[in-house]
Design a binder for these strands. Sequence first.
DNA 1: CGCAAGAGAGAGCACTGCTCTTGCAATCGG
DNA 2: CCGATTGCAAGAGCAGTGCTCTCTCTTGCG
Lengths: 235, 235
Amino acid sequence: MSPTPRERARVDTMERILTSGRQQLAEHGAAALSLRAVARDLGMVSSAVYRYVASRDDLLTALIIGGYRDLAEVAEEATTGRAAPGRRFVALCEAIYSWAREHPHQYALLFGSPVPGYRAPGGTVTDAARTPAVAIQLIEEAWQSGELAVDAPMPPAGPAVRRQAKELGAALDSALPETVLIRFAAAWTQVFGVISFDLFGQFVGSFEPGDHICTFTFRTAAHTIGFSGQIPSAR
Amino acid sequence: MSPTPRERARVDTMERILTSGRQQLAEHGAAALSLRAVARDLGMVSSAVYRYVASRDDLLTALIIGGYRDLAEVAEEATTGRAAPGRRFVALCEAIYSWAREHPHQYALLFGSPVPGYRAPGGTVTDAARTPAVAIQLIEEAWQSGELAVDAPMPPAGPAVRRQAKELGAALDSALPETVLIRFAAAWTQVFGVISFDLFGQFVGSFEPGDHICTFTFRTAAHTIGFSGQIPSAR
DNA sequence: CGCAAGAGAGAGCACTGCTCTTGCAATCGG
DNA sequence: CCGATTGCAAGAGCAGTGCTCTCTCTTGCG
């Protein structure tokens, strides 16, 4: 049952390919990610890499999945502790933001324009869902302890989006009201919207540097969800 | 003073290059935009295109600027009329959303990950600023007629972001309070955040199709800004 | 031990961006 | 009006890319 040397070598080179690809991505971006460069970096010939990776896009999706895992771990780690859920939600946003600034190319790969034709939907979705799941967990905590402002004023939600929210709640096995899930979706897009704006240079000429408006927007998102009263004041 | 035939031919081929590039972009995306393909499309040899366009990135930035102009025109047209500013703001969001769905690759080029190294800052910024300027115009209208909920509860804004908002207000020659500009920034990122989420496939497995959550989020953004009471109910 | 499967090497095809040189045509100055 | 200058297009070519094919050598299993 112990792995043969060949198998060991295989997973080892596979790992080296992924590591090199990750490095290429971090340094030069997804557009410059080249299988030949990875091969050069590893001291092998380009055709040999195809024994491990079916195509360039294949490597890219592997890196995407790894990125989602990375981010999810950061998110899970950032929300440990006993602070109020609202504070932990803001901490989660800040952690995502920090990760994005430290790994801008990875972030762009995950949340920027899809690179090839479209996102590969395979195992990507489950890994991608981990990070929002952390946020929903916080909301659920706040709701169960009665800390969530469920009746905060909000625009009316149409029947279609209510149904989607209901189905999502069922799929997540969550007892949260649909309105809360809907508000969460709106707030969640806000969090990533402001991070993307900052990283992709949309704040040039206005709110620059963007970290202050990001901090404010994270609190606004928490407010939108209903974490009112627990939001830490800005530094 | 009349343009010589040579000059006419020059601007003509320049236009044809841009048109072909726009088409390439719309059909196959920015990654597949190829100067050689443009040359083939126009029946000329690739080196000849370099008489008109310095590089591939050069053509790309030209298309970016054109995209910003396109979007700005859509935005300006969508906000004509005498409806309440809040309603016109939502109409603006919907118009942006429609444009994005009709031109997903252009939208990705403008608001997705920056393609080459970084966004060319030259004349891009002024064109990019036109669309948010439309929104700010609406806010100003609402404010001047006292329709804006200036005292709506909001998270505290730190001194840094207040200063940025003050400078932005001065640059825009706007009399709006800083808090309103800050709230606008947070709401604006929300609008583009939800559109990007939808177009880039982040709603797969949750709020799919995304148009309903987009509609709701646009209203939430309007609510965040302070257009309360004027927001049209969902269909 | 022998033979099939795995792994790397190399050549090669079609494509890309971009540069350089060459030849032709239009424009302008005298 | 004619020669010189300038602008434009074409072609070849370089370096790089993704990907496929064949060939060779090693590994490991029966």
